[in-house]
Design a protein around this nucleic acid. Structure first.
Length: 499
RNA sequence: GCGUCGUUAGCUCAAUGGUAGAGCAGCAGACUCUUAAUCUGUUGGUUGUGGGUUCAAGUCCCUCACGACGCACCA
């Protein structure tokens, strides 16, 4: 040990110091990396539930528990008493090493560092300051941590390092782990919710020759076997409706979608989308289901009543507000029907509102921009915006009383679009006409206009029952319910440019 | 893609163009109920990359890389 004082604090030297401790463990016959298992009696959370009621100073005499996890700060009181703690997935429990309880073992406490994975066996008690603690009778190093964790107080804050080395972020920033666990819970709860209601989960291809069902630029790749270029899916919509045609009456897919577009606080190139379709249902079926499902998920996330997101507080309570698309434009923008549905007048409105539009922007794009500027800022509490213009909705069924509008809604919460749903267009002739319009747009050089999937029309020609369908971006839902305002903070490994 | 800001010790951050510092961590020592433990001592630097200006550059100028934020595109 006399050489240790020569160890400095470069990264290499910090690692060397830890390797020296690893060597010490090995030479005492306790190679941590040779161990294969450690049987725990409790996770940290269980211990708090079971022994949390002990009084300060009280011991659960004769009770031995076994816990394991990553060591936190080491608080040594001289050479004879050391406090630390271990964290596992469920939480944290303090541990206490005493020379008189450990005997010869106690000298090995010197080989422990913050960050090591350790297993301990001991007796639960509550300290005089009131913290549940395990009085360690025996301990084992289960993996030696050779690298130093970031500082305990400020932790790791550098975004780049947090995303690139998420494992470190998860270790030292507990709320990150909690958010990721919440994400998993919400996804599992969604599957359970749908399965219970008779929906069937299917898996449709990610690799397609034509990625359709949405307006977005796809990623392009190549099949060596077929020697053709392929696109990664931008939606699951068309294949799921093929399933409806085929007779899978309540169908969903909860999976990854890829869009080759911008990256920012609310967009990652790959994201998780729920799409579901219900034969013999319509837009109203979807509205009821959305409201029930979202409120259910809020319950899973323990979000009830008032909830704050990005500095604004809203009410997450049933029933959600409803307003028709054109009514919303009238209410908050003073705009008439023709200001929206007539292309020239819509362009004039956009100009008056000083909206920046791309050169080749179509009617749909202009309307969308107006909506974004006029209506979205008003939509804080959950609100269904219904009866969308046809021109925005190439896959939705027309209203019977108004051929320029469709049976569609979007659910907005905290200004974010959370659900998009409609009565699915099942008239093959109408669908063909709308695809032809898109093809014409595309021929005029509009890169945004999707390439028509003619086989989808072919499928509709066999007859698709009247169907309600919805899509929902799961990442944004997780953002909303976790309070994270960046999509990167609800993804374990957000896309980063290689270093 | 455009704009703004950032990149200094393992981590979090300082440093008028004039000898690169602190806190934490690490290492050594004191302390048998600490919890940002405390106290004493101490180690640790290619200041993101490559150029330029200058007697002298972490600092000024240019290039590039990566990131955060905003805009554009999208969900």
């Amino acid at each position: 040990m006399s050489e240790d004082h020569e160890l400095g604090a470069t990264e290499a030297e910090l690692i060397k110091a830890r390797r020296a401790k690893l060597d010490a463990l090995r030479s005492s016959g306790r190679d941590p990396f040779a161990l294969t298992r450690f049987d725990r009696s409790h996770e940290a959370r269980d211990l708090h539930e079971k022994f949390g009621a002990l009084q300060p100073g009280e011991h659960a005499s004769g009770t031995l528990v076994r816990a394991a996890g990553r060591m936190g700060t080491v608080r040594a009181m001289g050479k004879k008493a050391v406090f630390s703690d271990v964290s596992d997935q469920s939480g944290r429990i303090q541990i206490y090493f005493r020379a008189d309880a450990l005997g010869d073992e106690f000298r090995l406490v010197d080989t422990l560092d913050r960050g090591d994975l350790v297993g301990v066996e001991g007796e639960p008690f509550v300290t005089k300051t009131g913290e549940l603690t395990i009085a360690v009778k025996a301990f084992t190093v289960l993996a030696k941590s050779l690298r130093q964790l970031p500082e305990k107080w400020h932790g790791l804050t550098d975004h780049e390092t947090r995303y690139r080395q998420r494992y470190v972020d998860l270790i030292v920033n507990r709320p990150v782990l909690e958010t990721m666990l919440l994400r998993s819970k919400l996804i599992a709860a969604t599957r359970h919710y749908l399965d219970e209601r008779g929906f069937v989960e299917v898996e449709t291809p990610v690799l397609l020759s034509i990625a359709g069902g949405a307006n977005a630029r796809p990623f392009v790749t190549h099949s060596n076997a077929l020697d053709i270029s392929l696109q990664l899916r931008i939606a699951t919509e068309l294949n799921l409706k093929r399933c409806i045609v085929g007779g899978i009456e309540k169908v969903y897919e909860l999976g990854r979608i890829f869009r080759n577009e911008g990256i920012d606080r609310t967009h990652n190139p790959e994201f998780t989308m729920l799409e579901l379709y219900q034969a013999y249902g319509d837009v109203n079926t979807m509205m009821d289901l959305s409201e029930d499902w979202i409120v259910h998920l809020a319950g899973v996330a323990r979000v009830r009543g008032e909830h704050t997101f990005a500095g604004e507080t809203f009410q997450l309570e049933r029933p959600f507000a409803r307003i028709a698309y054109l009514d919303a434009m009238a209410k908050w923008g003073g705009l008439e029907r023709a200001d929206i549905l007539d292309e020239q007048r819509a362009r004039a409105v956009a100009q008056r509102l000083k909206l920046s539009l791309e050169a080749g922007a179509g009617h749909a794009h202009v309307i969308d921009k107006i909506f974004e500027a006029v209506v979205e800022p008003q939509l804080l509490n959950p609100t269904f915006v219904t009866d969308f213009p046809l021109v925005l909705s190439p896959l939705a069924k027309r209203r019977r009383d108004d051929a320029e509008l469709v049976e569609r809604f979007e659910l907005f919460i905290a200004h974010m679009e959370i659900v998009n749903a409609f009565s699915e267009l099942n008239d093959p002739d109408d669908q063909r006409t709308r695809f032809e319009a898109q093809a014409a747009q595309r021929a005029r050089g509009d890169q945004e206009a999707p390439e028509p999937d003619w086989d989808y029309v072919h499928a509709l020609e066999y007859g698709m029952p009247p169907t309600g369908g919805l899509g929902s971006g799961i990442d944004r839902l997780v953002m909303l319910l976790s309070g994270e305002s960046s999509v990167r903070d609800v993804l374990l490994f957000p896309l980063q440019r290689p270093e």
